[in-house]
């Protein structure tokens, strides 16, 4: 039995108990002043109240459970989406354009280092030439 069915059963039960209470009150209303009626009815009324309380408590538990299940499945969805996204990113990074994107900064850095060393070499050479022997 899933949550929805449980809800429906509880709701049905609640309606039946409410009808029972109403019927009982209607039927015995005319003879209520008589003492023996209270002796018979009061325990029944108390039992009905207990059943109503139990139904209310169960309904709250089912509602709470449904809320928790919803939260759990929402976080499962979020986890799956995140996983799929990261796998897609990983796949993207394995393509040529992805590889170029990934390694372009490193290549640029190495090229700039070579350029810098080239400039430095020319500068040092010109300095050495300029120094009188």
């Amino acid at each position: 039995m899933d949550n929805k069915e449980l809800w429906e059963k509880l709701s049905e039960l609640s309606t039946q108990v409410a009808t029972l209470r109403k019927e009982m009150e209607l039927r015995f209303d005319s003879v209520a002043p008589r003492g023996w009626v209270h002796d018979v009815l009061d325990p029944i009324k108390q039992s009905i109240s207990k059943i109503e309380n139990a139904i209310a408590s169960q309904s709250a538990t089912v509602g709470d459970l449904a809320e928790k299940m919803k939260m759990m499945f929402e976080s499962h969805d979020a986890f799956l989406k995140e996983k799929a996204e990261s796998e897609r990113e990983q796949l993207k990074s394995q393509t040529w354009s992805g590889l170029i994107k990934k390694y372009a900064p490193v290549v640029l850095f190495i090229l700039s280092l070579f350029t810098l060393f080239g400039v430095l070499r020319v500068w040092i050479e010109s300095l050495m030439k300029a120094v009188p022997r």
Partner: peptide
């Protein structure tokens, strides 16, 4: 598929 970007199969 259960695990897909943007919306899962469950959603």
């Amino acid at each position: 598929d259960a695990a897909m970007p943007l919306k899962t199969g469950y959603e």
